[in-house]
Design a protein around this nucleic acid. Structure first.
Lengths: 262, 262
DNA sequence: TAATAAATGTCGTTT
DNA sequence: AAACGACGTTTATTA
């Protein structure tokens, strides 16, 4: 009998050796990497076929699986986390099935030749932090309302309104209600329509003048045109700028407090 | 001097050996796979940091790079195709830089320990075909209009209208104009609003009665409510069903012609 | 669980 | 290059 600590990396293995490594790797909840010549079939939310070629197959311990061609950001085929796997050694191929019962969805990788197979125990508890998100823009505006315009006073972070939540809401220096829609990327017509949905609801409830303000680093021509038609406004603001504001504010709260209290 | 066909797979290599393999692999336009302990920093459209942990780094010959944690469908960090790379052996780490000049965007992987490094020549010209897309639904409806309702007669595949293109347009058995919006997944409020945009334009130009028809496998409650409010209709239809229709139609054109001509 | 909107979305297509 | 919409989108958040 083979030792349980069988080699975890195989170069140009036989299909039998590869099948064994894949099976064991998946069973032991390891991360399995396979560089191979294969075809792929998918049936589920859609159907797809992929002709023969060399790809990298990645099987993760959370039950996700990816088939990557030697190009593109996105996998050509995949199965989301929570999938189950079945590896079968057949005549001339290793068949790797990744399926989700509930979704009636399955991806089948027909592995014809394995160049490299590895089963690795990857431990990863590193923290991931993303800055300059739309959320950050929101918080920056609340901390430093003058980012929008002088005299702007935010009311609540997000007020529930019929359709959903308004990104920011407040009053301008003239006391007008201002509804703000934030986009971290170039705003398009959709962004304006999203703002319009909120405006429509608040306009109904509120007899006062209400201003609609789209905040984004830039906007498409179509968006600007639609804004003009609806009488809304555009305020250019980059997520990077907001991120800096947050960093500064958070880095020096005591200093600000002291200097502010003099 | 080392032979140019140096080992392409290294298990637990030194940082120096790994750096050499990565550099050469990238220079030779190979697919480079690195399983390593690392941290990642990203600056560009947003900013992010990723603390220490074990990941799989994939570098593709088209200049895309992915950092995959042992979980999730999506990479935790990445750089799109067309990126440039710089690999530097430093004190205690291999620094892998992936950057895009034009976008002022860079991802830096600080590789502290390499478990597995491989540079592989992957050849992949296999054809990928996706079935049951929204496009397929459109074509199936044009080929078999009764999928929508008896007596439906499509006019043109897509007619340009101010906002864009209508998925399908036609006349019902009573001669009413019908505008069709297709969704391959569950239709939501946005889908209805998209249909409304087209309806608004055509309603203006056209004095006849115009019907709005949303076609999708299912629809959210909100979408159905909005549909009812606007007086539009919903026709359940799955992409799978359309795909079957297409397959049948395409598989037996001669037979149909013969039987149809009797 | 359903719905809603963000995403370093990516990717194709058309203007 | 810009805009626009689909995607087997995925993912997180919230009712």
């Amino acid at each position: 009998m083979k030792p349980s600590r069988a080699p975890q990396v195989l170069e140009n293995p036989s299909l039998g050796e590869a099948a064994q490594l894949i099976k064991k790797g998946i069973a032991q909840k390891k991360t399995v990497i396979i560089a191979c010549h294969c075809t792929v079939d998918y049936e589920g939310r859609a159907n797809s076929t992929l002709g023969p070629g060399d790809r990298v197959v990645l099987i993760k311990p959370d039950g996700s699986a990816l088939v990557h061609r030697p190009k593109d950001y996105a996998p050509v085929n995949w199965q989301p986390p929570g999938s189950l796997f079945k590896t079968t050694l057949k005549e001339g191929e290793v068949e790797l099935r990744a399926y989700r019962r509930k979704e009636k969805e399955r991806m089948v990788v027909h592995i014809k030749k394995v160049v490299l197979a590895a089963a690795l125990e990857l431990r990863d508890s590193g923290e991931f932090t993303l800055y300059a998100s739309e959320r950050d823009m929101q918080e920056a505006i609340l901390l430093e309302p003058s980012l929008l315009e002088e005299g702007f006073r935010p009311v609540t972070k997000e007020r529930p309104v019929d359709p959903g939540f308004i990104d920011v809401m407040g009053y301008d220096s003239d006391g007008n209600l201002v509804l703000v829609e934030i986009k971290r990327g170039r705003a398009d017509k959709n962004s304006v329509e999203q703002l319009k949905k909120y405006m429509d609801v608040v306009d109904r409830d509120d007899s006062r003048r209400v201003r609609g303000l789209l905040v984004a680093p830039e906007a498409t021509r179509g968006a600007l045109k639609l804004l003009a038609q609806l009488g809304y406004e555009f305020k250019p603001l980059t997520p990077q700028k907001c991120s800096e504001v947050l960093r500064r504010r958070r880095a020096t709260p005591l200093t600000r407090f002291l200097s502010g209290s003099r």
